[in-house]
Design a protein around this nucleic acid. Structure first.
Length: 245
DNA sequence: TGGAATGTTGGAAC
DNA sequence: CGTTCCAACATTCC
């Protein structure tokens, strides 16, 4: 569920709730008082990277799916919902095993919307500028930095690095300008490929590096290790992916 | 079947 | 005081 494109799908599927009023709110969340949601109209549903915001007149609730979060629309699961919102027309939206919290209403001041790779506001020039300002950062960490590439997760990281033939331990400052540009371009492009494949339920089938044993390009075994400050699982080909440092 | 994983946070430890 | 490390959360898959 949790990378940016999946949240984009969530936003699409829940657009029908914008403008509706919450007539019942419950769930096992401990972080907010669900009675405060009662009788509030949903003013907007937004995403920033992997986060989902429910904007109401007097509060904004943030949902983060973390690793295991799920949701259902007009459908129950066999697990208790973390947050369940029922609307005047009888429809409902349930979230499970996610993080729920109230955030400051000033969303525009809190988040850099130009950093969201799924957003119309995505600003590749600004992303390159942020990268140039962090020359010591490793490529594998840069892609997971939500301030630069909001919405990119570990799958997208591995696939982008493989696609642009960049070694995960390359330092950002050592990248030739064309490679830096490709990194930024593909962070967005792969995210939209991810979105299309996710919608047709063929995402895993299209993985070239993530969770793979052998390089599909040169057929030698992939390396697999937890790399970088982020210490996340990384798959790469020592032959195809060039190291810059 | 135990362990790891599409992720983040907060607090302890240094 | 800054940074780094680690547990916690909770579900699915192999």
């Amino acid at each position: 569920m949790p990378e940016g494109p999946s949240l984009y799908i969530l936003k699409e599927q829940t657009a029908r709730f914008v403008g509706q009023t919450i007539v019942r709110a419950e769930g096992n969340t401990w972080a907010i008082d669900t009675t405060r949601l009662l009788d509030q109209p949903v003013l907007a549903l937004r995403t920033w990277g992997k986060q989902f915001f429910i904007q109401m007149p007097t509060m904004v609730v943030r949902i983060h799916m973390l690793l295991f979060g799920t949701y259902r629309i007009n459908e129950e699961r066999d697990k208790p919902p973390r947050l369940s919102l029922h609307f005047a027309d009888g429809s409902f939206l349930n979230f499970y095993a996610c993080s729920v919290k109230e955030v400051d209403c000033e969303l525009d001041a809190l988040y850099d919307w130009e950093a969201d790779v799924m957003s119309d506001a995505w600003n590749p020039k600004k992303a390159r500028k942020k990268l140039r300002a962090a020359p010591d950062m490793l490529a594998c960490d840069a892609l997971l930095d939500q301030e630069i590439f909001s919405g990119v997760g570990n799958i997208i990281k591995n696939e982008v690095l493989f696609r642009i033939r960049l070694h995960p331990l390359s330092t950002v400052g050592a990248l030739p300008p064309a490679k830096l540009r490709a990194l930024v371009e593909q962070a967005r492009q792969y995210s939209f490929d991810f979105l299309a494949w996710k919608k047709e339920f063929t995402l895993k089938k299209h993985w070239l590096a993530h969770n793979q044993k052998t390089c599909p390009r040169c057929h030698i075994p992939f390396h697999k290790a937890n790399l970088g400050r982020s210490n996340r699982r990384t798959f790469w080909c020592e032959r195809c992916q060039k190291l810059y440092q």
